[in-house]
Simulated assay, not measured.
Amino acid sequence: MKRLMDILGAGLGLVLLSPALMALALLIRWKLGSPVFFVQHRPGLHGKLFKMIKFRSMDNSKDVAGNLLADPLRLTRFGRFLRASSLDELPELWNVLKGEMSLVGPRPLLPEYLPHYDEQQKRRHEVRPGITGWAQVNGRNALSWSEKFKLDVWYVNHQSLWLDIRILLLTLVKVLKKEGIGQDQETTEKFSGSEDN
């Protein structure tokens, strides 16, 4: 049932949102430059890497030597809006349709974090990563790494169709209210495992 809900939800979302996605792509190209999409390897089910696709939220600002500036310096007001509204996540519907992600599940993190997980934290990879998840509706980026992982494992232990529906509804409320919006994953402190293992 979960996979069926993912296929129907992602497919319907891509069709219904296609005009908005095209408009956003043009706006991003105009305000932030190209490429329009940000593609990065992330670990999915059982830790297998896949290419996650998002709308880009940073520009191409460089220093005098031609090197890209640090992420916080390239995150424009428009980029912050994309992240705060979660509009940058919409292309991940394609990852859901392909079976690499789910509508609901632990957020896919960076591959470099994999060696730092303890045995409990590794359990977050027993399910497909999600566009939204239990941690996102219970604090999102305002949570510590330890808190996020505990919520991720709680979801793995209690996942059900009704819980997924509840999370999707709560996500809509959180996004509209802009609750739990803290530092973004790309600019927050890296997870090293030192405080959580």
Rank of each mutant, 00 (worst) to 15 (best):
I7V: 13
I7L: 10
T76W: 13
E186H: 07
R124A: 12
K122N: 15
L4G: 05
G105Q: 14
S146D: 14
L143E: 12
H125G: 08
S160F: 00
L24T: 15
H116S: 12
R42P: 11
L168Q: 07
V36H: 05
R123F: 03
P106W: 02
L21W: 09
E89C: 08
R83Q: 07
Q183E: 11
S85V: 09
Q120L: 12
H46Q: 14
R80V: 01
T171M: 04
N157K: 15
L109K: 02
G130P: 03
Y113T: 04
I165H: 08
I28A: 12
M1I: 06
G13D: 04
R77K: 08
D59M: 04
L4N: 01
A23E: 04
M1D: 12
A20V: 14
E179K: 11
F81K: 00
F55N: 03
M1C: 12
E100M: 09
S85R: 08
D59F: 12
Q121W: 07
P129K: 05
V64H: 06
K178T: 04
Q120V: 06
K62A: 04
A135R: 09
L69E: 03
L103Y: 03
N157T: 02
D196A: 05
E112C: 11
L93D: 13
P72Q: 11
W134Y: 14
R107H: 07
V153Y: 00
A135V: 07
L14A: 10
P108T: 11
Y113R: 01
E179D: 10
N141W: 13
E179N: 08
M22T: 13
A142M: 14
S160N: 02
M58A: 00
V96S: 12
P111D: 05
L163E: 10
S85G: 03
V137H: 11
F149R: 00
F38S: 04
D118Q: 13
P19Q: 06
S144V: 13
L69Y: 09
F78I: 02
I165Y: 00
F81N: 01
N60K: 10
P35N: 10
G44E: 05
L87V: 02
T171N: 14
P111E: 03
L151R: 01
R123M: 13
F38Q: 08
L82I: 05
R107L: 01
D164W: 00
V173F: 13
L21C: 08
H125D: 05
R74C: 12
V127F: 02
K122D: 11
L90M: 06
G193W: 13
L4I: 15
F81E: 07
L103F: 03
A20I: 12
S102D: 11
G99I: 02
T171H: 07
L14G: 14
S34A: 01
D6E: 05
L26E: 09
A23Q: 08
I131K: 13
E100R: 01
L4P: 04
P129N: 03
R74G: 02
P43G: 14
R123S: 09
M5A: 15
D88Y: 15
W134K: 01
F149E: 12
K190L: 08
H46D: 10
K174R: 15
G193T: 09
A84M: 15
K177A: 13
P106I: 05
S192N: 15
D71F: 15
W162Q: 06
S57K: 03
M58G: 01
R140A: 06
